[in-house]
Design a protein around this nucleic acid. Structure first.
Lengths: 208, 208
DNA sequence: TAGGATAGCGTAGATTCTACACTATGTTCA
DNA sequence: TGAACATAGTGTAGAATCTACGCTATCCTA
């Protein structure tokens, strides 16, 4: 037991991890194995340790619950409504990250019954105020994508311009002009055109 | 005394309040009247109450310590390095705001020996990691000013274009072209030209 | 009343954004 | 094997925006 002269809130970290699979925007969720909201899907996260930095706590909880690691976490916002957790006052520091979904498979671990990637446009109901946290993360992601070439972080090494455009369109929720998009991308990024071509229905795509 | 099954950190809020005086960028600070760092200047802030929202706590602490109230606070970042406070683990949620300095005089109150506005380019040494918090707030302010007309929030009702330009230059730390600046400002803002003129050395200024 | 300080104003060139349509190549299926 | 289909790949013209830049009018002070 730990005693204090004044009341202290609990502090948690929660992670919104976006994963991309050449085409779809996904979000990493866990199925809770503890009360409250046992069985519900939620953002991975948990209580911080006293000697641990906030970012380190986020990374630890994420790995413990989903096995996902080695990513760049960025602080999103801190949520502290007095009644957001039924147990006690819990303040949560939310982090967000973007990864290549293929390189980061999700497997359930400690405190989670299950961990999985969900399509961003088809999510289950979330525990606590996690839907609100996720909504803010989506907003931030959309804003970020407009001036940051972060998208490339979660692309495989080889990709077609069509794929990149699909991703931008998925995130921004709008269609983009093909030529203008290529022009802009090629003017700002350093991409190399490869000889290889993809193999499927369409005829070919020069990998860049 | 309050006891918990697991250790809990303390949670505080801190406020970076920028004030503008037609010309200079100022920051609101308090002189601590309690240990640790007693006598040092610091950002206004303090411990949250258990039934209180984070933003409300920031507003309350700010008013208690400086008498400054009625402002728009925006969450900046949460700082939680394990050793940032010598007493115990303290996580602080930092807020920032911008006000018209004239309309918000600072007067010391609870927990503070003193409260005062300081020029942003001539600040005392700050307690804890408050210098780091302030630096981040400055960055955010600079970024914000570029696309947001927030500056007008802390201007008196009447002002000259020269004054606005001074403020932008002070915040951004660069000189701007007078004609281009006026053009842009007039194209985006709805300002009214007044008949009044200022009274001092220069000849006149049409208030907008 | 002469000199100094600042307000106020417009244009030309460069850059960037947007809208828009056709050809080339490979796949599939009859 | 060739006809129909799907997608990759490419350029230009007009609009809007950004930047650089110098002179005159007015008021104050000495």
């Amino acid at each position: 037991m730990f005693t204090y002269q004044y009341p202290h809130p609990a502090v948690t970290v929660d992670c919104v991890v976006f994963g991309l699979n050449d085409r779809e925007l996904n979000v990493l969720l866990i199925q809770r194995d503890l009360e409250p909201h046992r069985g519900s899907w939620a953002l991975p996260g948990g209580f911080i340790k006293m000697e641990e930095d906030l970012g380190a706590a986020a990374r630890r909880e994420l790995e413990e619950e989903t096995s996902v690691r080695d990513l760049y976490l960025e602080q999103l916002y801190t949520f502290g409504a007095p009644d957001r957790d039924p147990r006690e006052r819990v303040i949560t520091v939310a982090y967000m990250a973007i990864v290549n979904l293929i390189e980061h498979p999700a497997t359930a671990a400690t405190d989670a019954r299950n961990a999985a990637w969900f399509r961003a446009d088809d999510l289950p109901k979330l525990a606590f105020d996690h839907a609100g946290i996720l909504a803010m993360a989506m907003d931030r992601l959309r804003a970020k994508v407009r001036y940051d070439p972060i998208v490339f972080e979660f692309l495989p090494e080889k990709f077609t311009l069509r794929e990149v455009q699909n991703i931008y369109e998925e995130i921004l929720g709008m269609t983009l002009d093909k030529r203008n998009f290529r022009k802009k991308l090629l003017s700002t990024e350093t991409l190399a055109r490869l000889d290889e071509v993809e193999m499927d229905v369409a005829h070919r795509a020069a990998y860049l």
